[in-house]
């Protein structure tokens, strides 16, 4: 190569700075375009989500005494964590959400596995089938379950006529009913997020496991399951947080017997007109959900299979 002469070097420096400034200008323009495109949604979210949320937060720190007396305090929160009814409600909400997560994972994983193994055409069909319940309103679906699970309803009669039990458990207006309803509603989210992570597994990994001597079960346990953890985690987080904040299903299928927190908060605000206390309940619910989800994802990301999450 020819040595670079002085003038050339000058020229090269100038050229390179020109390129940099040109790129910077173009970047500015790009940001402006991006901002313009994002503006409607950002404005919408800010106006109808962020501001109301902040307002609710503000409300939750107001305590009322009598008709006119109102002052700032953390009394609402103190009340929540000292009253056994509300603590029981919180525990119930967490318990039912965890049951829902477990049930939808156990029911959903095999479906996701089938979707990952079958041909693209069948996969498309299955995806449609799995997602199709989302096309029906959750209220309609819940009424369907309502009829099936009624005392002496279809499911009860089926259990008795098959000779499984003579005195079937209470399904409607019980925790079982709510778990059935919630799992049914959120199963598609679990299936689709697990399936997505299963699609991403290189099929030759299972071949490699097989040729090294691992049978189908061992190969699933040591290779497929750990590698699908990202999908499991996102499915669990999705289903858990949706179950924690579900209102329609607990209200319809649990009634007064299963007072989950969203139902309780609704009751406080709409029926008892205790806006400030209802706001505090909402924020407790939000906080607990966030904390649990964060702890869970952190544990998975720092755990035995942390490499999978990179």
């Amino acid at each position: 190569m020819e040595p670079v002469r002085y003038d050339d070097r000058q020229k090269i420096v100038r050229l390179s700075t020109e390129i940099v400034t040109a790129r910077r200008k173009r970047n500015w323009r790009k940001y402006i375009y991006c901002g313009l495109l994002l503006f409607p949604l950002v404005a919408f979210i800010f106006g109808f989500f962020v501001i109301p949320m902040l307002y609710i937060l503000y409300l939750s720190f107001i305590e009322t005494k009598g008709e006119t007396n109102a002052f700032y305090s953390i009394g609402n929160y103190v009340h929540f964590f000292t009253d056994s009814y509300y603590l029981h409600s919180l525990w119930l909400t967490i318990k039912i959400s965890l049951y829902t997560v477990v049930v939808s994972l156990l029911l959903g994983y095999p479906v996701a596995l089938t979707m990952a193994k079958c041909s693209p055409r069948v996969r498309g069909l299955l995806t449609l089938l799995v997602a199709s319940p989302l096309l029906i309103s959750i209220v309609v679906r819940n009424f369907g379950w309502y009829l099936l699970l009624l005392p002496n309803g279809t499911v009860h009669q089926l259990l008795i006529s098959l000779g499984i039990t003579t005195s079937p458990p209470k399904l409607l207006f019980s925790e079982i009913g709510v778990v059935i309803g919630l799992s049914n509603a959120y199963l598609p989210f679990m299936i689709l997020s697990v399936a997505t992570s299963l699609y991403n597994i290189d099929p030759s990994l299972e071949k490699a496991a097989a040729i090294l001597g691992a049978g189908p079960l061992r190969s699933f346990w040591s290779v497929t399951l750990p590698l699908s953890l990202p999908g499991i985690v996102s499915g669990v987080v999705l289903v858990f947080s949706m179950s924690m904040s579900a209102y329609v299903t607990p209200a319809l299928m649990g009634g007064a017997n299963v007072p989950m927190l969203p139902v309780v908060a609704y009751d406080q605000i709409i029926n008892l007109l205790r806006w400030t206390y209802g706001s505090a309940i909402s924020y407790v619910l939000l906080g607990i959900t966030l904390i649990m989800v964060t702890i869970f994802t952190r544990m998975m990301e720092k755990g035995r299979y942390r490499e999978v999450f990179r």
């Binding site: 071949k207 040729i211 290779v223």
Partner: peptide, 30 residues
């Protein structure tokens, strides 16, 4: 006879190392 009972060794085009295992664990698997 299925592959896992044949006692062979195989190397694939896409390497096919188990991404969640270290080099040592990969070798230890079989």
């Amino acid at each position: 006879i299925p592959p896992y009972k044949r006692g062979l060794g195989m190397v694939f085009q896409t390497y096919s190392l188990f991404p969640h295992m270290t080099v040592y664990e990969n070798l230890d698997f079989g």
